[in-house]
Design a protein around this nucleic acid. Structure first.
Length: 343
DNA sequence: ATGTGTGTTGAC
DNA sequence: TCAACACACATG
């Protein structure tokens, strides 16, 4: 694997790569003259003569960036700077072709020559935004893991406002990229004296590793918050209530973040090879003007510097950031609260 | 044992 | 830049 060598230069700047002058995308698949029979060794049938010829030769793909594999599957690859970037292997030739298309658009811009791509140009804005907010390495990683479609879908769902994270600058976002696992609006008991957070069952089964027989005492999970602070929670199953819960460590989080019933905690997991877990939170509804909290449109200032503008359109992903900004500035939690109340 | 994806080469 | 080919080596 050589993803690490992918350099990151064309991200937020407008596409400067010019398409090949003589070609006009999209590439249309040529007539189906080759038949792939079964899997493994290829058999090429000459349709004209009707003679079946055994051949060790692998069938060429009709698609750009797609190469046959010895076992009948298909590989996708793209070249950049004298180097091949492997995009993974796929069961279907078309699947590999789509992977190439995606990579081509990320590597070479919207006008890149592709196999299918410009078929649906309407909803492409979201995908274009998605591509531009992920590094090449991340996109390649998704393609190789066959998770690109899911990630894109996630991003569509989260596409509520314009407060998307800014594009990466040095290609360093590979370690930061994360996919949303789930969110929960915390209940009064989640932030009360029970010192636990109930994780909705459908989410635990989908996202969290605990298997009932496996670990009755639960496991310790590390979550990183937006300020880079790591929180360790015990994650376990409570037979009494038949629920999955975060216990030890949770109350400290509630206290430091000053979580209140109705606030939303969200969990993410790194999309990269490391499976780092992340936790973040946002206020229930800033527009409701919960006492002691910032109002919409208000500029949060600290030491004379504008650090955060409270969004006017209700809850969004930035609403917890004042805490984080203060953490960066090294304030203790008690002081943080005082600063907030003073705002 | 199987399959992936890299090393390599030569054409375009 | 690109795909064809062979096969080292990763994977289970």
């Amino acid at each position: 694997m050589d993803i690490s060598s992918i350099d990151e230069s064309t991200t937020s700047d407008s596409i400067s790569i010019t398409p090949p002058p003589s070609k006009s995308p999209p590439l249309k698949p040529p007539p189906n003259s080759l038949c792939r029979v079964g899997s493994g060794a290829s058999v090429i049938i000459d349709a004209e003569i009707g003679v079946e010829a055994e051949s060790r030769k692998l069938p060429s793909s009709r698609f750009k960036g797609v190469v046959p594999q010895p076992n009948g599957r298909w590989g996708a690859q793209i070249y950049e700077k004298h180097q091949r970037v492997w995009l993974g292997t796929f069961n279907e030739e078309e699947e590999a072709a789509r992977a190439y298309d995606t990579a081509a658009q990320r590597f070479r811009g919207r006008d890149a020559v592709t196999n299918f791509k410009p078929l649906s140009e309407n909803e492409d804005e979201v995908e274009a935004a998605f591509l531009s907010t992920h590094s090449k390495a991340e996109i390649v990683d998704m393609l190789r893991k066959h998770t690109y479609g899911d990630e894109l879908e996630q991003s569509r769902k989260n596409y509520g406002g314009k407060n998307r994270a800014p594009a990466e600058n040095g290609g360093d976002t590979a370690a930061r990229a994360r996919g949303q696992l789930f969110e929960k609006a915390v209940t009064p008991s989640d932030v009360g004296k029970l010192n636990r957070l109930v994780i909705p069952k459908q989410h635990t089964e989908k996202h969290f590793p605990l298997q009932s027989g496996n670990n009755s005492k639960g496991v310790l999970l590390n979550f990183e918050d937006s300020g880079g602070k790591v929180w360790r929670f015990r994650y376990s199953y409570w037979n009494s209530s038949q629920s999955y819960v975060l216990t030890k460590g949770w109350s400290r989080f509630v206290k430091e973040k000053n979580l209140r019933a109705g606030d939303v905690v969200s969990f993410q997991r790194s999309t990269g090879p490391d499976k780092q877990l992340y936790i973040d939170w946002k206020s229930r509804s800033i527009t409701n003007g919960v006492s002691g909290r910032a109002q919409p449109g208000q500029m949060v200032r600290l030491f004379g510097v504008n650090i955060f503008e409270v969004p006017r359109n209700g809850v969004d992903s930035c609403s917890g950031k004042r805490m984080i900004e203060m953490e960066i500035l090294g304030l203790h939690s008690s002081k943080k609260q005082r600063v907030i109340n003073a705002l």
